[in-house]
């Protein structure tokens, strides 16, 4: 991790430079979730403004992935409210569809469709969900593949690419839907150290362009460079949230101090 961290720090992109609007885009109020009788998320309250870049960290099983998966209804919450761009997530399929069109997601294991080429992966949702004409969708897809720096792989199948390339395709695939919010669920955890940087670089680019991002990650270098807020979760609760410098240099909560000492001291 140390190499990545150093690399990231050399890029002069202090998070403070990036503009954040006052407009609230995601609102989570008193949200609870249970798996059967297991209380996974306890009273989550979170407001995200447009343009914010939030990094969520915490030990495994702390509910961080579950929380961001609630935002696009991959997981159902049982109590409380989640409001995305003025649409509340309920059982109403129309609302769910509306929110999913606005929210892109990148997964730990990429979840590319192995039976489709890279280009087809990118054009599928625009064509079927947004009824974009095929030609237009392909142009857009090539534009985003260019941006993640793998346009030459467009005709290949995901199985023929490296992990880092696959994850960049997954990011491009999400961007093709023109989302206003991006969720990243441990996007670099399944990657070899050499490939982490190429994915993080793409994510940093995105942040610079003002994308609203929620990112579950253990890449603390990334958090320091890009995030304007870091959230620490444990046991299904938000323990602490702060801006990165305060969070890393001066953690308030004992649990946070322990966590940071464990992930930073090796």
């Amino acid at each position: 991790m140390s190499t990545t961290e150093a690399d990231l720090n050399t890029q002069n992109s202090p998070a403070a430079d990036l503009k954040i609007s006052d407009e609230v885009t995601i609102q989570i109020k008193n949200m609870h979730k249970w798996y059967g009788s297991f209380h996974v998320l306890k009273n989550i309250n979170l407001e995200v403004n447009r343009g914010e870049r939030i990094v969520i960290c915490g030990p495994s099983g702390s509910g961080k992935s579950t929380m961001i998966r609630c935002i696009n209804r991959l997981e159902e919450h049982q109590q409380g409210h989640i409001i995305v761009d003025d649409v509340e997530l309920t059982n109403d399929l129309k609302n769910i569809d509306a929110i999913r069109r606005e929210v892109g997601m990148v997964f730990q294991h990429f979840n590319l469709f192995p039976h489709l080429t890279v280009l087809e992966n990118c054009t599928l949702a625009p064509i079927w969900v947004k009824q974009v004409p095929k030609k237009k969708a392909e142009e857009t897809a090539m534009k985003y593949l260019q941006r993640v720096k793998i346009p030459e792989q467009a005709g290949k199948y995901p199985g023929q690419l490296s992990g880092g390339q696959q994850q960049r395709v997954a990011i491009a695939r999400s961007l093709c839907m023109n989302p206003r919010i991006m969720l990243f669920d441990e996007p670099t955890s399944a990657l070899d150290p050499e490939m982490i940087k190429e994915v993080l670089d793409v994510m940093i680019e995105l942040a610079k362009e003002g994308m609203t991002m929620l990112c579950v990650t253990h890449e603390m270098g990334f958090a320091k460079t890009v995030a304007n807020r870091v959230i620490f979760m444990d046991g299904g609760e938000i323990i602490e949230e702060n801006e990165p410098h305060e969070f890393f240099d001066n953690p308030q909560h004992e649990r946070t101090q322990l966590f940071l000492s464990q992930i930073l001291e090796h």
Binding site: L74, F107, N111, L124, V129, S174
Partner: peptide, 23 residues
């Protein structure tokens, strides 16, 4: 099939029958 395939299709906003037929 890994569960991620359905999840990715869902997250992109595909409807049930679309995700079944295409993915």
């Amino acid at each position: 099939l890994p569960k991620g395939q359905t999840e990715a299709a869902d997250a992109m906003g595909l409807k049930y029958w679309q995700s079944m037929r295409l993915i």
